[in-house]
């Protein structure tokens, strides 16, 4: 079972940021459960094989005020994919990661220097964010940069993050993550 963690402040935004990922899983016959981060229980994490932390709207940074709700991440050690806000959460769960402001909206060509879930070289991605993280390089490896880090992986734990929204033009990332 894949746990989809919803970080949207507005329930209406779930249709835009969680439902598209749910639809990808459903169309591939993958079992899932959606839980809002404020209602997440230990049993939800224990029962999950993999976890996807979905993104939210460009104006919604509420989750950053509630980082305590994500204290489970560092000890989880199950594959986690953080999308946009989810990548910020994964990064900020580790010391010496910095949160910076930068807006990117629309399609961008991003160069993947190393293979990342099947993506390599120039890839067109859909961006929608007002913040990004500079991860600490002791813990994280950066796979792609376009004005700011776009794809990261933890060096020892199966934690991944993408700043862009793979559910729009790069669904293979989600499919490949589900195959881990």
């Amino acid at each position: 079972m894949i746990l989809l963690v919803n970080i949207c402040k507005e329930i209406f935004h779930e249709l835009e940021f969680v439902r598209p990922i749910k639809d990808i899983l459903m169309s591939r016959g993958i079992k899932f459960k959606i839980v809002h981060y404020k209602e997440l229980k230990k049993i939800d994490i224990d029962n999950a094989k993999r976890i996807i932390i979905c993104g939210t709207s460009i104006k919604d940074n509420n989750f950053l005020k509630n980082m305590k709700s994500f204290s489970w991440i560092t000890g989880c050690n199950k594959p986690i994919l953080g999308i946009c806000g989810g990548m910020q959460i994964i990064g900020m769960s580790f010391r010496n990661t910095h949160l910076e402001k930068k807006k990117q909206i629309g399609m961008y060509g991003v160069d993947f220097e190393k293979e990342f879930f099947g993506l390599q070289g120039r890839v067109e991605v859909y961006e929608l964010h007002s913040r990004y993280i500079i991860p600490n390089l002791k813990d994280f490896e950066i796979f792609a940069v376009k004005q700011c880090p776009q794809a990261i992986k933890h060096k020892t734990m199966p934690y991944y993050g993408v700043l862009f929204h793979p559910e729009v033009r790069n669904k293979t990332i989600i499919e490949e993550f589900c195959r881990l």
Binding site: F12, L15, S57
Partner: peptide, 15 residues
């Protein structure tokens, strides 16, 4: 974003 308004796209990426 410029006008500081929320933007909702409830049909986004829907089949």
């Amino acid at each position: 974003d410029k006008l500081k308004l929320e933007c909702f796209n409830p049909l986004w990426q829907k089949d």
